[in-house]
Design a protein around this nucleic acid. Structure first.
Lengths: 218, 218, 218, 218
DNA sequence: CATGAATGAGCGTTCATTCAT
DNA sequence: CATGAATGAACGCTCATTCAT
């Protein structure tokens, strides 16, 4: 690849990343190309040097987001080797979505889901994009769980059900994040979530009674 | 004296209900007023005899949906007095959302959430509409739980945490329903859900070991 | 004519008169049929029992206005036999248009003129309607002038130029009325008008110097 | 760096000037944006690159017209230093409005007045625009009159009444111009006007009897 | 005879996209 | 390569008119 091509690729990604801000704030339909150009710091026509259509930019944005999000989470989880800390970090990282005042990630998630499932949604035919992403998240959690089993920290019998547990955990995290959005007080759901997490950990820990000790160290 | 007698309120509700079909299939922005008129079996201009704007029709549709959905579920749950059956019915009723080939309800949910949380969403300023609905669902579950406690079927100690449990259950159900949408095979999540439900019931039943017996009778 | 027909005619005129209120306030285009029905105290559909189109109602309104206006002025002028008083009454009656806070007549005049002269104006093809009316006003003034000449009050030589004088007076009265509309203070033009009238009377009176005496008696 | 260099201000004025043609022919309401675009030789959407709304274009048109009209008249009047010729030129210039087959200016005047005085007229709240314009015309005439007085051509005593005389003259010119519009034969009013002008000049000339001599030289 | 619910043509306006520069 | 002026299809909405009652 010549440097020129690398530059083009880089700029393409920069535009897609800039677009994420607006897509998460206003949604796809009510964000117009002029605004996308403005936030990317380029001219309206220049958008079309990098993307064939607004839809293409949207799809590229999803890809950016998926990549970014996963990479970030992987880095976060990899920081520590302790399975409990790994899982806890993962959950906390996911919760960041709604505890934070910046709920852009979960709003993006909703927007993307919408366009994946609506009949004439932009990514209705590229639904597998989201699906694959979701699967990669499942795999992350599964890996952590199996790692914990192999270390003797998690119950051995959960190995068989690791995928189910992972999917269910992720479903819960999505659901509680969305709930967080339609809540006046961002902290409202915190006790519920803590309650859930405690139950969750106790159900997978080899020594459930040690949950309190684990948690103290975090 | 109005010669052409029309039950304005009834027709208003009929149009709002017809609109739900398109709003759930295509979303708000990509459904145009002509299509809304067509599916309601009326002329484009007639929409404006019943609603001031397309936005108003959207909001009326939400209200129809909320009313419909809750009424339906209440009827379903009230059919039986046994707390376990009540809760099971409730969960199954919620799951219908994504096990069914008709996923219109969960798609509506996403569309409405989107417009509740996006900066220029139609119901951004009427977010409490959705919030209130969600609270009514929480109350339903809480009632079932407390009913079960008073009957000695559920553990007495969950009474204190009933709201947390309810919120968490609903969050999970939302999350797994959304997952169901981006899945090729509608049945894919069934085992995960069953696994979750088993764990859930065992965590609240006074006699967890009897879960198998309960479930056999359903 | 059967009484039914008389009733119909009467109601037709009543509607046309009621419409004048709105046509003078808002103009033809921005007044809609619903508003015309409301001010006439009838149903929207009923308008079409009496007029084929909104345009027809507009034309009928003009006719009502013309009739009304002339009849009123004739009555006013006929109250007295003195030519100076007649003429003065006439001018004052015309000025009423703009000295009054109710400038509906002059606004109607503008609206009607507009639709008489614009290419696709409602009465572009019935322009003679307005023209005839204007001529009848000219005749009124001419009659007063000739009456004054025959009574020796006005200069005999103006008989020859009576029509010119009449037309010019009317033109001035229209012009100053319109000016009155775009004036903040309704009284602003009063001194100008008085100045004009003094000059006008002095130019036609057989004994110009007696103008002061005449005016004192009014 | 804008590659396609367009003088935005110039084009804005060009569009506003082109619009004048239609506004004077058809009026504001019955001229649609497509037609305005067509006469300006641009696409419908392009109108909105230069004006926020159709109303704004209308207002800009008025401003163009006011500017144009005054500038033209000032140039005409300034051509000569003789007060009589100046005033005569002014009156003739004003009369052009209705002697000409192109009566667009007086039709515009009516349209603008209408929208200045009707309750929901476009420039009801910008009435002072028209008012200021009218005042500038008054000042032009006043200046000519005072110039004539200072040159000894006009009676010294009119200096005191210059404004009244000016307003009255302008009112007459407006009125007679409007009359010209609803006349079949454009020449019909010429003798009346001549009669008026003769009277007018004789009333202000220091030596009224010389009017015939003055007029001969024009 | 009187009505107002129903209608669609037509409006003003927006915006993704094109393309001359 | 970058631009923003230009565009017209498509939108939401209005309203004169019709007609079943």
């Amino acid at each position: 690849m010549s440097p020129k091509i690398v530059d083009k690729e880089l700029k393409t990604r920069e535009i897609a990343q800039a677009a994420l801000v607006l897509f998460s704030q206003k949604g796809y339909e009510t964000t117009n190309v002029g605004q996308l150009a403005e936030i990317a710091g380029i001219g309206k026509g220049t958008i079309y040097e990098y993307f064939q259509t607004k839809e293409d930019l949207f799809i590229a944005s999803i890809n950016e987001w998926i990549e970014q999000d996963l990479t970030q989470m992987i880095a976060l989880v990899d920081e520590n080797d302790d399975p409990v800390i790994k899982l806890f970090t993962f959950i906390e990282g996911s919760m960041e979505l709604h505890q934070n005042e910046d709920s852009s990630k979960i709003r993006l998630f909703i927007e993307f889901i919408k366009h994946a499932v609506m009949e004439d949604g932009i990514i209705y035919k590229k639904r597998n994009l989201i699906k694959e992403m979701k699967n990669r998240w499942v795999m992350m959690v599964v890996d952590i769980l199996l790692h914990g089993v192999s270390k003797g920290v998690f119950k051995p019998e959960i190995a068989r059900d690791a995928e189910k547990i992972a999917v269910n955990l992720l479903a819960y995290l999505d659901g509680i994040s969305i709930r967080g959005l339609i809540t006046e007080d961002a902290m409202e759901n915190v006790p519920h979530t803590e309650y859930y997490i405690e139950g969750f950990f106790k159900s997978i820990l080899a020594e459930p009674d040690k949950f309190g000790i684990y948690i103290k160290n975090l």
